[in-house]
């Protein structure tokens, strides 16, 4: 902004040119470091796996092949994990956005019985938690271990999201609801017919936060799920990586060594390709959702 003013008033001085060039280079380097790994991973997956294994791929793909992608489709449990992940991301996001908005709406009502107490209790959970193991024990006692619900139910009310939505709802003019009251609309009618439709931007922002969190979460599976039918894609990848971690240190000789090398090559190809497959959805939607995120951060920043 300041630079725009400078430009209008006087031509760029040599110092300005130098400054712009230097900054431009520094930022270009950082931006390169941010994207190159993703590009590199991608070219590795379409290159000859043997060349990848010895680190021969640098900037361009070599020995183009789609073998890795064919192999990855044969990975056990992949389809099921994809299904679980998608269902979880969609259903978890929708239900959590709704529940957070629902609670937010009633917290905008100053006359709620015991409002101060309830609001404080809910907000306090952002800064205080019983801890990982007590939560684990509690969820176990509730029978959520090894069920699909562990992905959905504990996170139904997101307190931070609730505050974001509440802040946004409070900026609505009160007359909107007052006129609806005169027409005899109850709380639910007002929530669904008037308030929620006007909160689409913040609901979209919150949903995006949630969907990425759902997509990226692997620790819930690690902690609560042992049934492979309930694995998510991220967890599948995590397991794959953990296997590689453990086997790469094993020493073998002779024919076994040849076989082992072939297996390692194959495993590397699958691991890289699986990584690409797992992150692809995020990469594809990222350009479209980025600006929503920025908005979300700014609302959050205002509220602290």
């Amino acid at each position: 902004m300041t630079t725009a003013l400078v430009k209008r008033k006087k031509p760029m001085t040599p110092q300005d040119v130098l400054f712009n060039t230097l900054c431009g280079i520094v930022f270009a380097i950082f931006a390169f470091i941010c994207v190159f790994p993703f590009y590199y991973l991608f070219i590795c997956t379409i290159s000859n796996p043997n060349l990848v294994e010895v680190g021969r791929i640098t900037i361009w793909p070599k020995g183009l092949t789609l073998r890795n992608y064919a192999e990855v489709l044969k990975v056990d449990n992949l389809g099921n994990a994809a299904l679980i992940t998608v269902v979880r991301a969609v259903f978890g996001t929708l239900s959590s956005t709704f529940c957070s908005a629902y609670l937010a709406y009633f917290f905008t009502k100053q006359n709620m019985w015991g409002r101060r107490l309830w609001y404080r209790l809910v907000v306090a959970t952002m800064y205080f938690s019983a801890g990982m193991i007590p939560e684990y024990l509690n969820n176990r006692a509730l029978g959520l271990l090894n069920t699909f619900w562990i992905y959905i139910v504990p996170g139904l009310v997101g307190v931070y999201n609730m505050i974001l939505i509440k802040t946004s709802m409070e900026s609505l003019p009160g007359e909107l609801e007052e006129s609806a009251v005169l027409d005899g609309a109850g709380y639910m009618t007002r929530l669904f017919r008037i308030v929620l439709p006007l909160q689409k931007p913040i609901l979209a922002t919150v949903s995006l936060f949630l969907v990425v969190n759902h997509w990226n979460d692997f620790f819930t599976t690690q902690l609560y799920v042992t049934n492979p039918r309930l694995y998510t894609l991220q967890f599948l990848l995590y397991e794959f990586l953990a296997q590689v971690k453990n086997t790469s240190n094993a020493v073998v000789t002779g024919d076994e060594a040849v076989n082992a090398t072939m297996n390692v090559v194959r495993a590397t190809g699958i691991r890289l390709t699986l990584t690409v497959v797992v992150m692809l959805p995020i990469m594809l939607v990222y350009p479209f959702i980025q600006k929503f995120y920025v908005k979300g951060v700014m609302i959050g920043a205002v509220k602290g």
Binding site: L103, F106, I133, P134, E135, L137, N138, V153, P154
Partner: peptide
Amino acid sequence: AIALVLLFRYAPLWG
């Protein structure tokens, strides 16, 4: 909705 918060954030205290 408040009960969900109590159930998943406060109930673990028994642990």
